[in-house]
Amino acid sequence: MRFNSTTFRIDPTPRRADGEYMAHARISCLADGEESNVYMSGDLAAFDARDDAIRFAKEWAVAWLDARYG
């Protein structure tokens, strides 16, 4: 992770659909205590285990941020 983690917040909370956990990430920028520039990934992949969905979404978000701000 090369970006400043105090600047960005990643919310990898999956949603439940048809018995699976759908990985997705909400990425926001923090400035002066306010959230701005929110990006929603959309559904990335489906997993049987919640922890797998969270891990996948976090890794995807870090790669997305590195590609843009790294």
Rank of each mutant, 00 (worst) to 15 (best):
M1H: 12
R2I: 14
R2W: 11
F3S: 00
S5V: 14
T7Y: 14
T7F: 15
F8T: 00
F8M: 05
R9E: 10
R9N: 11
I10E: 00
I10Q: 03
D11F: 11
P12H: 01
T13H: 02
P14Q: 06
R16I: 15
A17W: 06
A17T: 14
D18T: 00
D18E: 13
D18A: 07
D18K: 09
D18I: 05
G19R: 01
G19P: 10
G19L: 09
E20Y: 03
E20I: 01
M22G: 03
M22K: 07
A23D: 00
A23M: 12
A23R: 05
H24Y: 10
H24M: 12
A25P: 07
A25G: 09
R26C: 12
R26W: 06
S28V: 15
S28C: 15
L30M: 14
L30T: 11
A31V: 15
G33M: 13
G33F: 05
G33N: 04
G33T: 10
E34Y: 04
S36F: 14
S36V: 09
V38G: 10
Y39F: 12
G42E: 12
D43M: 11
D43V: 13
L44N: 10
A45H: 07
A45G: 02
F47M: 01
A49H: 11
A49Q: 09
A49F: 08
A49N: 08
R50T: 06
R50C: 13
R50G: 06
D51S: 07
I54K: 02
I54G: 00
R55P: 03
R55T: 01
A57Q: 03
W60N: 00
W60C: 10
A61P: 07
V62G: 02
V62F: 08
A63C: 05
A63P: 06
W64K: 05
W64N: 01
D66A: 00
A67E: 07
A67F: 02
A67Q: 02
R68V: 05
Y69L: 05
G70T: 08
